[in-house]
Each structure stands twice: as C-alpha cells, then as structure tokens.
Amino acid sequence: MAVQKTGDRPPHHRWRKRLLVVEFGSLAALLASMVMLAGAGQEGSAPSRGWLLVPAIASLLVFLSFLGLMYLRWVHETGGHSQWRHRVTFGLLTLTLLGIWIFGIARTWISMV
C-alpha cells in the first residue's frame, strides 16, 4: 500500500484505513444491536446473555480501533521526539478506557442475574 503525503501533513499509516473501517463497521453493528435489544425489551421478554455478546464485542472493537487510531496519531507520528512520554500517557489512557469498558460490561452482566 502506498504512503500518501499531502502538503505538510505526515503520511498516512497503512493501518489507518483498516482501523477506520473496523471502527465504523463495529459502530454500525453496535447501534443495530442496541435497536434490536430495545425492540426485544419492549415485547416484555428479557434478552438472553448470548445476545448481549453482540453489543459487547462490537463496543470492544470500537474501543480497540479507536485506541489504534489514537496510537497512530499520538505515538507513531511523533517519531523519536519524546516518544516514551507519549507511550506512557497513551498506555495509561488505554488502561483507563479498557477498565471503564470492563466495569460497564461486568455491571451489565451482573445486573442480568
């Protein structure tokens, strides 16, 4: 895949387009599953735990692709200039966001019991 360079902007990384496709595809799947689960909730029947895996996996893919795009922008494009600080900051942000995601998924699953 060719690297594009336009003006003063840095070249795009080869994973950028793939991550964007995964992010928006997962976001569409997440929204569709939420609409489906809302429809099932209006019928009075509680959704099974298996159906809760669809939005859980879709939201995880949205988070991971979002984090991948942030890594490309914040760490990869900085080059050697204070890259270790960017990696530490990015690592802390990643742990925080994934911790919040795990907490939300765990609370949802526990509330189903």
Rank of each mutant, 00 (worst) to 15 (best):
K5F: 05
H76Q: 13
W109T: 07
A2K: 14
G99D: 03
T94R: 12
E43D: 04
G25N: 02
M1Y: 13
G7R: 02
T94N: 11
T6G: 01
F66L: 14
S45Q: 08
T89C: 12
R14A: 08
A2R: 13
T96Q: 07
E23K: 15
W84Y: 06
Y71H: 15
G25S: 08
H13Q: 05
I105W: 04
G41P: 00
D8Q: 07
G104M: 12
H76M: 02
P11F: 08
A29N: 00
L31K: 00
V113S: 06
L30V: 02
L69D: 07
P55L: 06
G80K: 14
L31S: 02
L95F: 11
H76I: 06
G44T: 04
G39H: 03
R85G: 07
A38L: 14
R16K: 05
R107W: 09
S45R: 08
R14C: 13
G91Q: 05
S82N: 15
L37V: 03
A40H: 09
A56D: 06
I105K: 05
W84F: 09
A106H: 07
S33H: 00
M70T: 12
H86R: 15
R9M: 12
L20T: 06
H13Y: 10
M1N: 08
A106G: 01
M70L: 15
F63H: 10
L37I: 11
A32F: 10
Y71I: 07
S111F: 10
G7F: 09
V75R: 03
T6E: 15
F66G: 11
L31E: 04
M36W: 13
L72R: 09
P11V: 09
S48D: 12
F66K: 03
L52C: 02
G68Y: 02
L19H: 04
V22Q: 07
Y71A: 05
L31M: 07
S65G: 07
I105A: 08
Q42P: 00
F90G: 05
G25R: 05
A56W: 01
F66V: 08
S111W: 13
F24I: 08
W109C: 03
L67M: 09
L92M: 13
A40G: 00
G104K: 09
L30Q: 00
G79V: 04
F90L: 10
W15L: 14
I102V: 15
P10N: 04
H81F: 11
W109E: 09
K17C: 08
M34S: 02
M1V: 13
L27Q: 03
L98A: 10
A32G: 02
